[in-house]
Structure formats: C-alpha cells, structure tokens
C-alpha cells in the first residue's frame, strides 16, 4: 500500500535530502506537506523549484533549509518572501540562484538520463559563472554551447487534485514543472485533494500523467495547497496570505501548528 498518513510520508524525507516542490508561486503547492516537514524539524534540506512562494519561504524561515535552487521566490501580489530573504541575507540559506529556464534544463537532463543539457546563451547573467555552468564545443560545428548539469531530486513532492491509492495521479490545469520533476526524481511523494478508485481515475485518463512508478507515498490531504490555490477547487486565501507575509519569528513557529494539516 502506498497510501499513508501525512506524518508517515514526511518521515521518508531524511535531513539533507534534495526535494523538488510542485506548482508555481501560490498555485498547487504542497503546502500541507511542507508544514509537516517543518513540524518534524527537518534540517539541511535542499529545495528546488522554478518559482517558489509560501512553501520555500516557510521552510527557510523555520530553519529546515540549507540551499534553495530556484529562479524566483516571492508572493507576487502579497509582496516579498520575508523569511526567505532574511535567511539568505544572514547567510543561513544558500540561494543557488538560477533562471527558471536553467532549473528546467537541469531537470530535463535528469529526466532524459543524460549528464547535462545544452541551453541558449545566457552567459551575461551573473549567476551563470556562480553556478559553474560551462561552455562546450559544439561537436557538429558552429562554436560553443552553454550547458547546465543535471540535477536529480531525491524526492519530487507533488500536490495534485486526484490520485488512486497506488499513486497514479492526474493534474487539472497547468502542470508547471511537475510532470518533468516526476520523470527526473528518484522518488515521488504525492498529496492529493482526493484519493479516488482506480476505475474513476481511468475515466479521466487524458489528465493522468503521473504513473504509480517511483511513487513511494500517496496521502489524501483536503486543502493541501492552502493558503495557496488548487483550481478548480479553491482559490488562494487572500486574508491568510496577507497575514502570513507579515508574521514575526514566533508567529511563524506557531503558524505550522495552527494551520492544519
């Protein structure tokens, strides 16, 4: 059985793991899972995502993170990700800054089973050197090509709308990098708004792009993206996000116990 409780699933994540998180900014983020990671006081996590929001910020603010690999971390209309900023400014978290495109390239290389991915020339951006991205000679002629090394997450943590108890899952609406992450990662943990019978999931087979392979845990978590949005079921909680954006350190610590799951 792959179906289990949220705390059992979070226990699979060891300190120091490289995890990639689903969704984008405040959309379909694995918020409940991330809160559980914080409640279990994980340490030294390496967190990967193209554009993080509440999820990355919360883990940074509660001391769970060693490194963030991302192109952007912010709350869009709710302002800047205060805890992420502070952690980076004080040197508690290393921000391995990328652009969304190079995060995708690193995941693509891992998904394709190859060591690196050639990308368009973005070498005038300062982080290219800082990340150590290297040019190689195009073996077919035409000069040099910039490359990005593969990054293979230990776990892709995906919040989806529906899954079955074995871990087959569908995503409604934009995938963002989630299907790619699922291909790239060694293991997958799913939280789902609903766990439905396999026959029911099959009726929507056109949306089922996460097969049970590599899925180590599936957890039913209603409102699992809260205070983020999980369309078509619910929008973000504007009031809670505004409140969250202004929590002080002590309030952040109690936030993860007050907001359940």
């Amino acid at each position: 059985m792959t179906e289990m409780s949220l705390d059992e699933a979070a226990e699979m994540i060891k300190d120091g793991s490289l995890i990639s998180l689903s969704g984008n900014l405040l959309f379909r983020i694995p918020a409940a899972f991330v809160r559980e990671l914080a409640r279990q006081e994980k340490k030294d996590l390496r967190v990967m995502k193209t554009a993080g929001g509440y999820d990355v910020d919360l883990l940074c603010g509660l001391g769970c993170v060693k490194e963030v690999i991302a192109g952007f971390v912010s709350f869009e209309v709710f302002g800047l990700a205060k805890n992420f900023r502070k952690a980076v400014e004080e040197g508690r978290v290393k921000y391995s800054e990328n652009t969304c495109y190079s995060v995708i390239a690193a995941l693509r290389a891992a998904a394709y089973g190859i060591p690196f991915m050639p990308i368009a020339d973005i070498s005038r951006s300062y982080f290219v050197k800082e990340r150590g991205f290297k040019f190689v000679e195009n073996p077919y002629g035409g000069g040099k090509v910039l490359t990005v090394p593969a990054i293979k997450p230990d776990y892709a943590i995906l919040h989806v709308q529906k899954a079955d108890e074995d871990g087959n899952a569908l995503i409604y609406g934009p995938w963002f990098e989630d299907v790619l992450m699922a291909r790239a990662a060694k293991n997958i943990i799913l939280t789902a708004e609903m766990i439905v019978p396999t026959e029911e999931l099959r009726r929507e087979i056109d949306a089922v792009w996460i097969p049970k392979l590599k899925v180590k845990a599936v957890v039913e978590v209603r409102n699992g993206a809260y205070p983020g949005a999980c369309p078509p079921y619910y929008d973000m909680d504007f009031e809670m996000m505004e409140k969250y954006a202004n929590l002080d350190e002590e309030e952040l610590k109690s936030h993860i116990w007050e907001v359940r799951p």
């Binding site: 192109g71 652009t99 495109y101 368009a120």
Partner: peptide, 8 residues
C-alpha cells in the same frame, strides 16, 4: 526574489 525567466 530572483529574475524568474528574465535571463533567457
């Protein structure tokens, strides 16, 4: 926050 997709 970082440049999101801007570099490319």
């Amino acid at each position: 926050p970082g440049g999101a997709g801007g570099a490319l």
